[in-house]
Simulated scan of single mutants.
Amino acid sequence: MKNYASNFIKKVEEYGFKAQIISFKHMEEIKLGIENMKQTYEDINVNIGKYLNKFDYKVSDDFLKPKSIIVIAVPQPVARVYFTLGLKRYAVIMPPMYLLNSSSEFEKKHKKICEITEIVEKILSYENFKAIKVNIPCKPLAVKSGLGTYGKNNICYINGESSFYWLGVYVSDMPWENDSWGSIPLWTHVKIVICV
């Protein structure tokens, strides 16, 4: 049997990205984890509820029969931004996650995110598979899939690398062979991690 997931990961690595693939069956667990967290911590809805409510776990069966969830990590450099205050110019280091960050409703207009999506779709099309970009919690998925780990500071570090990565999630009709869903609790650090 052909190992589609391993072939996809090898091809995506040629673009300098990292990826991990898990079974679509975990989508319900992800959704329930967020719902449980919102009920457990009273301040969640007040502080970050507007972000959590934008997650969308539905995938149309008209487009594809979902079989897998693909987590992509794309390197992002640190940027330097300059501000002028009075007559003096100040340099500020901008963390990498802000350069490629976009609210979910504007992702389809973000040039770099569109390029990444085109690459994912192109690689999958070699085997006649499809994918759609979805807005679900990326960092907990990266950790549970084995693509990343949480540091003591609750930031997601891509394995063997830094935290200087943009994370994206796609749902595909590509089958997976070895589900890498880990034993680390999904929501251990979630109060901080979701908003970091």
Rank of each mutant, 00 (worst) to 15 (best):
G146E: 08
Y165Q: 02
T84F: 00
Y98C: 12
Y90Q: 07
W176N: 13
I136C: 07
W181L: 04
K139P: 00
S162D: 14
T117G: 04
P137I: 06
K130W: 01
K111Q: 04
D173W: 02
S103D: 10
I119D: 03
N135Y: 14
L186G: 01
V92F: 15
T117N: 12
P140L: 08
I123Q: 11
V169A: 03
N128L: 03
F106R: 03
I184Q: 07
D179V: 09
I132P: 00
T149I: 07
Y165E: 02
H110C: 06
K109V: 01
Y126K: 10
P185D: 13
N101H: 15
G86V: 01
E121I: 02
D179G: 06
R89G: 07
E118D: 14
I132F: 03
E161R: 14
P137Q: 11
N128F: 02
E161M: 12
K108Q: 12
K152P: 03
I119T: 09
G168V: 00
W166F: 10
M174G: 05
I136F: 04
G151H: 04
S162R: 11
K122C: 11
E161A: 13
Y90R: 05
N159M: 04
M174N: 08
E105R: 14
S145T: 02
T84N: 12
K144E: 02
E127Q: 13
Y126A: 08
M97S: 13
A131C: 15
Y157P: 10
G146R: 05
E121Y: 00
S102L: 00
K108R: 10
K139M: 09
K144D: 00
I155S: 08
Y150I: 07
Y98W: 08
I93Y: 07
V92E: 15
P137E: 12
L87M: 06
E107V: 03
N153D: 15
I116M: 09
I136S: 13
L141Y: 10
L186D: 04
T149V: 08
V92K: 14
K112V: 03
S125K: 12
G146N: 06
K109A: 11
P95V: 07
L124N: 09
I132C: 13
G86Q: 10
P185E: 11
Y90G: 04
L147E: 03
K108N: 12
I116W: 10
I113Y: 08
C114H: 02
Y90C: 07
L147G: 09
V169R: 06
V134L: 02
K130F: 01
I184L: 07
E118V: 01
L147I: 04
T149W: 00
K122M: 13
K122G: 11
E121M: 03
G168S: 13
N153G: 04
M174Q: 05
T117A: 11
G168W: 00
N154M: 08
C138V: 08
N101W: 15
P175L: 06
V171G: 11
P96M: 09
V171R: 08
D173V: 04
T149A: 10
M174R: 12
E121Q: 13
I155T: 09
L100Q: 13
P185Y: 05
Y126H: 14
D173R: 05
G146K: 12
S180Q: 14
M94E: 14
